[in-house]
Each structure stands twice: as C-alpha cells, then as structure tokens.
Design a protein around this nucleic acid. Sequence first.
DNA 1: CAGTGGTCTAGACCACTAA
DNA 2: TAGTGGTCTAGACCACTGT
Lengths: 240, 240
Amino acid sequence: MAKYVDIAKQLKSKILKGEYTSEVPLPDQISLAVIFKTSRVTIQKALDLLINEGLIYSKQGSGTYVKQNINLLSKFDFTIDQYVGTTELMRGHTVTSDVIDYDVRLPQPKEQENLNLAFSDAVYDFYRLRIVDDVPWKMEHSIMPVKVVPGLNQGVLKHSIYRYMRADLGETIGAAYRIIRAAQPNAYDRRYLSATSDTPMLEVEQIVSLADGTPFEYSFTRNRYDEGSIVVYHPERPML
Amino acid sequence: MAKYVDIAKQLKSKILKGEYTSEVPLPDQISLAVIFKTSRVTIQKALDLLINEGLIYSKQGSGTYVKQNINLLSKFDFTIDQYVGTTELMRGHTVTSDVIDYDVRLPQPKEQENLNLAFSDAVYDFYRLRIVDDVPWKMEHSIMPVKVVPGLNQGVLKHSIYRYMRADLGETIGAAYRIIRAAQPNAYDRRYLSATSDTPMLEVEQIVSLADGTPFEYSFTRNRYDEGSIVVYHPERPML
DNA sequence: CAGTGGTCTAGACCACTAA
DNA sequence: TAGTGGTCTAGACCACTGT
C-alpha cells in the first residue's frame, strides 16, 4: 500500500469521526509531514485524494479545511465516485439477482466498438433483476466479452460479478464512462419493476474498463424514478 | 499558468490532432521531461490531468497510451467533468434565456444548509428557460445568495451568470455536487417544454461552490428525456 | 535484463492570506 | 510580515512489463 493512500485513509477516518471539523483548518502540510514521518509532497498527494472525494478543500495562503454538507445521500442513492458493484454498494442490505435472460453470441458493431472487440469475439448478453431486501430494484442489461471475463456462468451472475473478477480473476476495476438519461418505460420495466406508461425511468449506460484500459462491461441499468438517483461530485480542475 | 497545466494542454492538443494514437505509447516520462525542459514529477502531474479527463491511461512497466472511444457524445449531451455554464457549453449555438420568475427573499432551512447561510441572508430565487437556437431546451430553478453574487439583476440573467461571475466579480468556479434523477413532468415542464403527462424528465439538482469552498448556487435543472443526457467520466481512484 | 511508470525525498521559490 | 498552500527540481529506489 502506497504511503500517501494510507495517510489519506487515516485522515479520512479522522474527518468522519469528527476529529477535524470545518471550524478549524487541518494541521498545515509541514506539520502533517512531521506527524506522518514523510515529505511534504507525499502529504500533498494524500490531500489530493481527499479533495477529489470532496471531503476537504485547500485555500492558498490560508489552510486546508473540512467541507460541510458531506451527507446529502438518501438510502437508495447511488454514488459512483469510485466503482463498486451493486452488491458492495448496498452493504448492510440483502442483494440478490434473478437472471432473466442469458446468452452467448457474437457482438454487434456498436458493442465491438465500445468493447474494442473483433467481430469474432464472443460476448455474454444477460439481463439481471437486482433485488434489494426482497424488493425488485434495478434491471441490468450487460454485454461482456468472454475473452476478458472467462467463466461467467449463471452461478456467478446470481451473486457478484465484481467480486468474482477481483477475487477469482485477480483483476482490478479501473475507469468508467457513463451516460445518464431519463427514459420511457419499456416492457421489462413494466413487467419486473411495476412501471406503468407514465412512470419515468432513470437509465445509466456505461462502459467500464480494467486498470490497464481494457473495456470489459457495456451495460444499461434502469430503475424507476422514485427508486434512486445518482450522486456525482466534481472537484475543481484546470481547464485544458 | 502552471507549467504542468501548460504541458497538459499541449499534450491534449496533440492527442486531439491525432499526433499520438492508441497504437503506440506516448514518449516515456523521462523523454517528455527532456522535451519540455522540466522534471519528471511535473510531467507526471500533467499526465494526471489527462488521465482524469479520460484521455490517456498508464500501465506500469509498459507505457502511457491514448484511449480509444474518446467520442460518444451527441449534440445535446451534457458533459460535466469541468464546470462551465450552459452558455459556454453550447459554444457555436445561440443561447438565450427567458427569465420566467425573479424574486429576492429569505432562505428556507434546506437552502440555508446547502448554501451555508444564516436565516437572515437574502437569496435570489429565479426560473430561467434556456433556449438554444430558438428552441426551448432546459428549465432552471436557481437559488443564489445575494452576499456571494451581488448585482445579479435581470440583465445578467438574460445572458450568462458564469461569465458575469468570472469577468465582473473575478470569482473562480470550483467544485460541484450533483444529484441526477428522473422525474414526472410538472406544470413548468408542460407549459414551457411541451411535456405531457407521460414525458419523462431528467433533473439535475446541484450545489456549486467557488474555489475557496463557498457555495453560491443551489439549483434544479430539467429537460425532456429526449432533449439531452449527462456524460460522466470516472477515473480509477484508490479506495479510501 | 532493460525499460517503463509509481512512489518518495529534501529542499527551494513563489503566490496568496491574514493579522 | 509570518504562515500557508502551489509549484518545481534532481535524484533515488521500487514494481511491473516485455523480451
């Protein structure tokens, strides 16, 4: 574990425990360097992680402060700052999956492009109804390349794909592109999520990649408008 | 302008011009340091910016590569990786605003909390219909504190608030929290955006802050489901 | 094994804030 | 003016990839 990640974890833990508040700045970077027996640059890398999570902010010439309003999330809101699957996101709840449909086939042109595949690279194509605490919650339609995620059988699908990839395949999940939109309900929404013709749906289309840049998931996830929203934090960044 | 930002801009420009492709890695960090007459750490900070924009990725022991699929955005999609107002986002199009409603009043409790205000700090409360190329596009409902954004009259509202803040007030826009959801159409949607009872709406609730952490905007922006979606990129980050 | 990115150091100077 | 964060350097060692 890199030292700056470790320091960021310790600082985050202190912030969440309320040991640093928004009243008073954190210790300055040089003091932190002394406290953690490291250099100032390493402290800055640690603080950068917390800034990117929206936990703190720095003000040149003044200090580093804890942000207020760190908690706007309601129960089924869906944070996607770092990628974890539904199973992990809903820790403390019972998450199960009904596999509605499962197929292995050749990819369509759009899938070839988004997943960077040859026309002859087979893909899984499956629908899963994600159920939280026995209540149907989201409908997922996923396309994943067989060569990138081998051994993805229905047993794995009933549980957690992400856990399987990390634990069994030893892969590290990396970046994700997401397109978020509202949509009219389709036949699956009506059948499995109790949507009617005037129930707005929230849809997330996403391409998720491994740490080395290989895309491994192209999926569409939908839920009723009253069953969850998406929370995004955007730190300040220089315009390029 | 910081050197690493400048380098990032130059590299981005080369990537967009196709001078670096996904076939061949970028020059290694030491070569880049020589080319730009700087140190390796500065090169790394520049590359970090491009990684966070999703333009490139690095693979330890191998090299730094340009990502493929850099273009999934359709005309009215709405990227929010770095914050710019609608006016700037839609460069090349004619953006105008009808001010539907304008009021100055005391803040409600939720607004006090989200904007970090005392009960006696007045806020602007206004609705704007944003019109692109003469077509009604989005309905914005904004609450902004008078003390943070003084002089926000209807003349400014007709044009660009963000331009006013940057150019006239000299402020730097910083981070933003956003909650994205689907919603049923309300009276404004029906009246101004031609929504009917079965037209799903996409709503973005956001708190935007200045660079120094002061929140200055609490707003709700809505558009029809078929008039734009939101694109988000999430780089890989260590879990804290 | 050579080449690459990831991390870390000790120190320097600058830009900005606040008293 | 003292204290703080922002940037930058020159160099070191480690972890990983690919041959």
